[in-house]
Design a protein around this nucleic acid. Structure first.
Lengths: 210, 210
DNA sequence: ATCCAACTTGACCCGGGGGTCAAGTTGGAT
DNA sequence: ATCCAACTTGACCCCCGGGTCAAGTTGGAT
């Protein structure tokens, strides 16, 4: 590979990482090329597909952070606390970083590394779930598939609410967690209730996809 | 209005109702015209905007059914049962009819009648919620804004899961309801857990908007 | 210094959805 | 039967995003 191509590949990688983090993995490829200061033809030359570009940055963008959270969740003394921490933290990551959200829940089957990250996440989820279930604090009929769907939904909510009601997703997660633990503890909600206007705004963003 | 225009308006109304029910309120206007056997120019002549067309059919498509469910929910002897019935039934309506889903959660602020239906739904929700809270069976920090967001999320999930795992939304609703009631009752789940493959399929449909 | 393969560029293609409007057709009043 | 306003039509325009490729440029080996 020639030196200039190398440089361009790097510029594209950087631009992609930036834009993925700002706007998610579905950002137009031409826009990535524009930010990299390069023709979109060059992007196609060097990477060919969006998936290849994703695989190029997914490790930096998401893998490490997700692994960290999972690891920390397993280090909690109380299994339920670990589980709750995991759910909240993953949702928080998703809320603050659209790239993470799309990695966890966006399906790009052609992006091998992304799929690998996804599998790791599910494996971690399973371990955290089973630990809490063994401790008797998490309902036994909850599966890691359920959890990944929760992550997917929460990511959509968080993105829709980012402008009008940041943190709204925390209420949803709180309700859900209270339904998942075996004890009848109803924790206080972490965020104030939404106004009707906020709710309408969020609802609007929920169906109009970015 | 001339007789032929009248007929075309009716054909368009019918086609819109059909397609809205099949594919939701975002269906391309040109497709509605096609199904009506009419040029899309005519659609623009007679209705001008998507919102006008929506207002034309929203009452038939959604208003009555939503009102019915709300009314029935209030007729339950047990306030919690009424609340749970309401949540499940509205989600079920949404799952079986994309038009209802978009009416409840899709934001079309320019469609006056749709907004009216929406307001009615929120009013009904408030009454059902407050009744259950007065009875002490629903946690007091749950608001009608929360509920409408639940409806919005569930609608997305149901649509995404329609092909791969119909009924998957019921698990989510069940978890949530268990987190909303004050007693520590954990009902049995209404549907079998998803396979990993199903979960992946649903997750895919969740981000790829129809 | 030469030269060619490697690389870049941007014009161009596609399809999809929203929207407009001049030209042609037709209902129905007279 | 005539006639014109009301109506319909489909070609045309827009923007967007994905994708291709001939022509032009340039790195770097010789």
């Amino acid at each position: 590979m020639r030196a200039d191509a190398q440089r361009n590949a790097e510029k594209l990688r950087a631009a992609a990482a930036e834009l993925f983090q700002e706007r998610g993995l579905k950002v137009p490829l031409k826009e990535i090329a524009r930010r990299a200061g390069v023709s979109h033809g060059t992007l196609y030359n060097l990477y060919g597909t969006r998936e290849a570009l994703i695989d190029e940055v997914v490790t930096d963008l998401a893998a490490g952070r997700l692994d960290e959270v999972a690891e920390h969740a397993l280090s909690f003394g109380d299994a339920w606390d670990g589980f709750a921490y995991y759910v909240e933290k993953v949702c928080e990551l998703q809320a603050t970083d659209p790239a993470v959200a799309d990695v966890v829940s966006g399906r790009y089957p052609r992006a091998e590394l992304l799929m690998a990250v996804c599998d790791r996440a599910q494996t971690a989820s399973t371990r955290i779930i089973e630990r809490a279930q063994r401790a008797g604090s998490l309902r036994p009929d909850f599966t890691s598939e359920d959890l990944l769907l929760v992550f997917g939904s929460s990511a959509l909510l968080a993105r829709a609410a980012a402008g009008a009601a940041p943190g709204a997703w925390r209420r949803g997660v709180a309700f859900l967690l209270d339904g998942l633990r075996t004890e009848a503890v109803r924790g206080p909600l972490p965020v104030a209730p939404l106004t009707t206007q906020q709710m309408y705004d969020v609802l609007g963003g929920l169906t109009a996809n970015p």
